[in-house]
Nucleic acid binder design. Structure first.
Length: 156
DNA sequence: GCCAACGTTGGC
DNA sequence: GCCAACGTTGGC
């Protein structure tokens, strides 16, 4: 492979859809992203890219496990469904405004990594997710950050 | 194209 | 539930 897979962090509220839900469903489409920057990140994703599965609005928030992109970006069909809470009148099947990818379950971490621990870990200080007020729900992660977090999650 | 008002995110 | 930080919208 010319390029090793890229790494990302994707936020989800576990009350709505958490790592256990993904473990049960195996594959899920990542609908509902309504932020252009986050959307653009998803559009640049490729099948095989690695995903840190992050629980937000949780107690505590943190990284719960890993997922993998299993379908390149395609139109988010909830955006033109008037019954969806993600409905956007500016989006149509002919001219979709929003995108999503499919992700598949990889693993649930043996050790959940709370946001506090991310903050205190040397080597992770540049991560967007620990920047106060950085609300981007889909964000890029460096290979080093990804590997470090995997080690923490597996207890190594 | 500026920027104030407004809505949302998300940690606390 | 609070509110800071940020993105989006819309009047001008």
């Amino acid at each position: 492979m010319a390029n090793s897979p890229a790494s990302w962090l994707m936020k989800t509220e576990p009350d709505v859809f958490g790592i256990d839900d993904l473990a049960r469903k195996r594959v899920e489409h990542w609908d509902g992203v309504r932020n252009f920057q986050a959307r653009n990140h998803m559009r640049s994703m490729k099948v095989g890219d690695q995903v840190l599965f992050y629980h937000s609005s949780a107690d505590p928030p943190g990284v719960a496990g890993l997922a993998r992109v299993c379908r390149d970006a395609y139109p988010d069909f909830t955006s033109w469904d008037p019954k969806s809470k993600y409905y956007d009148e500016k989006s149509t099947p002919d001219s979709p405004r929003w995108s999503m990818v499919d992700v598949e379950f990889v693993e649930k971490f043996l050790h959940f990594i709370p946001l506090d621990q991310l903050r205190q870990t040397r080597g992770l200080e540049d991560m967007l997710v620990i920047r106060r007020g950085m609300r981007l729900s889909v964000q890029p992660v460096t290979p080093k950050e990804f590997e470090l977090i995997c080690r923490l999650g597996r207890g190594g």
